[in-house]
Nucleic acid binder design. Structure first.
Lengths: 193, 193
DNA sequence: CGCATAATCCTGACAGTGTAAAGATATGAG
DNA sequence: CTCATATCTTTACACTGTCAGGATTATGCG
């Protein structure tokens, strides 16, 4: 085994991992393709063959980001008592993801660099959206209720990712969870009837 | 009067206007300082004397953005019937601003490029935040109610700025307004008591 | 196995970016 | 009028993304 084989073996996956680190450290606005290549130990032009250009790489990373986003929601919904509790837990998961991976969150929700017309990315995004719709349907909700749950969950998460909700940063984990649960509960269909 | 006097006269204001156009067309991620200078008809290094670097220019633009944001809310709240109606109209103004100036909205709420420790920018941001707190206080609300109104308003606006709420894009102006009013009303203190 | 073909990765080059230094020009105070 | 200062330009450098062409390895076909 040579120390540095000419062919990497699984450069595509290595580049995606390197891109994730780069994104986490520099953010979308400081993201550099050459820096990603350096992280993976290859030349600056190596990523081109696998992803085309930087947009292609960020598109693939976004698709993976959406899948992780959905996985975080699924994990958060685990053990839900009923449909109502499940929707609330989904909102908690939304915030959990935004706090754990703020730059990835911004990439998939606030950036224009990924190609959102890409088939794989669209599929990943649609999966998450359909899950949201399903959550509300289980509650007997309407279109407006979907918007309500999504907007509230997204608002909390996006403000938290930008560290704008300073009132929440001084709270303990338990207090924060309780507050989020209460906020989400306000917008669910049939709330406080 | 020379056709091109060496000294611009009011280059600082001209650069801010050029930067706003640049931001509107290219977005935060495509924003170029040299392009801004070209728009203003000066050399690429001219902005440095007035704003230091690109971060300084975007910081000044953000402060102006926050003032316009607040102005949009003020205009939207004009003629409110009571404190409750005023809070709802504020939410409408939030969305109005995000739709009218999506890139400026993203600059002040989702970008890391401006220096949010800058005194002028902080003052502009605090003004908007204090106004929000005041709105809720008039309703006899608590800290959680502030978070509720902010998160819901911001969630709707941010999703709309990113064109994620496709269900709302097919609505008429009136229908959209009615929907926003209903969503905001859900989170206000004493809702549906 | 032997070899042509394709896939993979590297090197070098180019235009564009932000920033700093140094020079040119106008302004204004004394 | 003189000259210090503010303003703007020119020049230069390192960095970025992308493209063209060359080097190397893997793969499939005979």
């Amino acid at each position: 085994m040579a120390e540095k084989p000419y062919h990497h073996g699984d450069l595509r996956a290595a580049l995606l991992a390197a891109a994730e680190s780069e994104l986490a450290e520099k953010g979308v606005e400081g993201f550099s393709l050459r820096s990603v290549a350096k992280r993976a130990g290859v030349s600056h032009a190596a990523p081109a063959h696998h992803f085309g250009d930087v947009k292609g790489l960020l598109t693939a990373l976004s698709a993976e980001g959406f899948r992780r986003f959905q996985a975080t929601l699924d994990a958060s919904e685990e053990g839900a008592l009923d449909a109502r509790d499940r929707a609330i837990r989904a909102g908690e998961g939304y915030l959990t993801f935004a706090l754990a991976r703020p730059t990835l969150f911004r990439l998939i929700f606030s950036s224009k660099k990924p190609d959102f017309g890409d088939a794989d990315l669209m599929a990943a995004g649609d999966t998450a959206y359909c899950h949201l719709v399903w959550l509300v349907e289980e509650l007997g909700g309407s279109t407006a209720d979907v918007a309500a749950l999504w907007a509230m969950s997204h608002g909390i998460a996006d403000l938290a990712a930008g560290q704008r909700l300073r009132m929440m940063e001084n709270l303990t984990e338990a207090e924060r969870k309780a507050m989020v649960r209460e906020l989400i509960a306000r917008v669910l269909p049939g709330a406080r009837g």
